[in-house]
């Protein structure tokens, strides 16, 4: 049923900012369609009134005390960054 075409794959790939080679797109489209066909088995399951399960133990969030525990570690954290200047991470100019 869920047949994805080339433009679907391109749209999803852009949302994910994921480069996909032009010649591989048909294969991804087929792969994805097959996976979606497989997961469509779930459609036939009656889940009326079932609470979605996010955590296997249905645990709740613990709260952290508001204490500063981290100190400046910039040198270590930026040691292998692709491009850094004056402590800033550099990217191609962003137009707003």
């Amino acid at each position: 049923m869920s047949k994805l075409d080339k433009s679907d794959v391109e749209k999803i790939a852009f949302l994910a900012r994921l480069g996909v080679d032009e010649q591989d797109i048909p294969e991804y489209a087929t792969n994805l369609s097959n996976i979606l066909d497989m997961v469509e088995q779930l459609d036939s399951v009656d889940t009326q009134g079932v609470r979605p399960m996010a955590h296997p133990l249905d645990a709740v969030q613990r709260l952290r005390a508001d204490v500063v525990t981290e100190s400046n570690d910039r040198e270590n954290l930026q040691a292998h960054a692709p491009e850094v200047e004056q402590g800033l991470y550099l990217v191609p100019r962003v137009v707003e």
Binding site: D8, V9, I12, A16, L18, V20, Y28, L32, I35, L36
Partner: peptide, 17 residues
């Protein structure tokens, strides 16, 4: 695109969709 392999891409695409 250059850094991730085919299976990872497949799953990212499925999940994004």
């Amino acid at each position: 695109g250059e850094g991730f392999g085919a299976e990872v891409k497949r799953r990212i695409l499925v999940g994004t969709y």
